[in-house]
Design a protein around this nucleic acid. Structure first.
Lengths: 329, 329
DNA sequence: CTGAAAGCGCTTACAG
DNA sequence: CTGAAAGCGCTTACAG
């Protein structure tokens, strides 16, 4: 492999000079610079990033930790991150925890050992070990989706998004609104969204019987199953609307309702969150919340870049959202 | 930061010994090993991968080059790749060409400079510069989706998949089958799929008027537009079925058809390729081809790992597929 | 404007 | 079983 020494020899200069020419640091006469560049061109020389990174402690790589590689949300966020980062010459080192908390921590440490210049974590849970590890590694860090104490966090406005959705249903005349949530282990999706729903129901003086509330696990199937359970448990006091905290679960619920001959939205209104591509093309199209995940990714990358460059930034950023009203309500 | 020297000092041994203990290479007395491991544990020491990689010429990183980060196909493939690689302790360095051919080449070189142990390219086109670059960089290489001459390639069986779909429509009684393809710049999707369609039509003695053939650009919108154009151009000789080479374009076509009051499949049958999640939940559900992208990703990773370990492998691998018959035909 | 030298944190023959 | 030394390919004070 061609190294800086080869280039130096070919150009009849020291490797110091080659380095300077390559990095446009320090003075190099125009003459010499051209000679060097020509040889670099000809040989197709590319500096070894390992050597560079060993020396400079910078790698030009940003670690990204995902809960799942294959969800639309993750993909959009990564897309946004990459768009900003690629422009600045950074690449993404991708890791997927498969929702395993231990792996979250392992990967943070692994990424550190790979000298990444920063880490972006799509967070799904909060625990002390995690916070502790983040502190320890001393790498510019950014969390998306959960507010991690002491860590710069970019959060979706889950409370108001969920409240808006609930209020919208109430204003449409629904009084019995079923709810399909997820485990509170995921504070943002599990706790906050449910809390907003309950708060709004209470505010409107509408009762929430526990038979109306189910807990899924993000999958379409779990939406289907929860809908089934809710309908069975509610007996003669059936809801007229169902609010699932993710589009996938909402779609699962719709599947079950369709199977049972329910007309949507006449017999049962359905809403989700996430603005998945499916939500638009399913019949009837699904009312949902768009969290602008790609923008979140972009913003995350920009903030992280600022952190890397030692700019002071705030600790918490709240993202915006949009309610998309479609045919399912 | 803690380095191997710190550990050596704390354990009262040389860094040679620490290295040996860490990598389980060479002899280390049980006593010393335990002492070292304890200190490693306590300090949270992680060896610098840059230093390691500079020395060993291996990085434990595989570069993946994607045409687009945010398509379901890419995501599934990456997911499969990662599943296999993560198990072996490899991480993925992700790059997105945004369909720019020059970037494909730039990224190959960039990944090389980052000392990746191998590269997987989701290929969308074939050109000499690309082939040339792949040869030059001398990195274990694997292409998915196109057969690149001289490069180990994993290809979908586009010809037979497309032929099966066409034949299926013919057997259902369709004689005028419209086609929405993409540019032949993408040999697999653009050329091969169209060729199979034309071959089968000819085999059955069915004419293909050029008014029945459109060219989209993978987007839903382009499917919509092409459907519109085809219907306009065909005048009184309208097709009774339309074959789009991707699900997204098929879905766009369906949207237009629905708008125009066509009943699917009664007035017009629609088929796509890709088994997107949307294809299952759209109404009517879309008949399509499942290419098992995730398995392709796994297979790619396994083959690449073999290459890295100097195992001899064949140059071309053909993947399997499955026709999913749904309500749109 | 240019170069010699030190050093980043590892691994690996080589010697004992 | 253990260690001293060389070297991977860079960058960066320092000196001129």
């Amino acid at each position: 492999m061609t190294t800086i020494n080869d280039i130096a020899k070919l150009a009849n200069v020291s490797r110091t000079t080659v380095s300077r020419a390559l990095n446009s640091s320090g003075y190099v006469s125009e003459d010499v610079r051209k000679r060097i560049m020509k040889i670099v061109e000809e040989t197709g020389y590319m500096p070894s990033q390992s050597a560079k990174s060993l020396r400079t402690k910078r790698s030009g790589v940003i670690g990204v930790i995902l809960p799942r590689l294959s969800t639309e949300t993750s993909t959009r966020v990564v897309n946004g991150i990459n768009e900003v980062l690629a422009k600045e010459g950074f690449q993404i080192l991708l890791t997927d925890t498969e929702l395993d908390k231990d792996k979250e921590i392992d990967y943070i440490r692994l990424l550190k050992s790979r000298h990444v210049d920063g880490i972006i974590l799509l967070a799904t849970n909060i625990n002390d070990d995690l916070i502790e590890t983040i502190k320890q590694v001393q790498v510019p860090f950014l969390a998306i989706g959960q507010e991690l104490p002491g860590v710069t966090s970019l959060v979706y406005d889950d409370y108001h998004a969920s409240a808006d959705l609930t209020n919208m249903l109430v204003h449409k005349g629904h009084e019995k609104i079923a709810f399909i949530g997820v485990s509170p282990e995921d504070p943002s999706v599990g706790k906050v969204r449910e809390q907003a729903y309950r708060d709004m129901m209470e505010e409107h003086g509408l009762p929430v019987s526990e038979a109306m509330v189910g807990q899924g696990d993000f999958t379409i199937d779990s939406g289907y199953e929860q809908m089934k359970t809710i309908l069975r448990d509610c007996k003669d006091d059936k809801p007229t609307a169902v609010f699932a905290v993710t589009d996938r679960m909402a779609i699962g619920a719709m599947e079950y309702l369709k199977e049972q001959g329910y007309k949507i939205p006449e017999d049962m209104a359905v809403v989700g969150i996430g603005a998945s591509s499916m939500s638009k093309y399913i019949t009837p199209s699904l009312t949902t919340i768009d969290y602008f995940n790609k923008d979140a990714g972009k913003k995350a990358a920009e903030l992280l870049l600022n952190k890397i460059n030692d700019k002071k930034i705030e600790e918490k950023f709240e993202l915006t959202y949009r309610l998309i009203l479609r045919d399912s309500v």
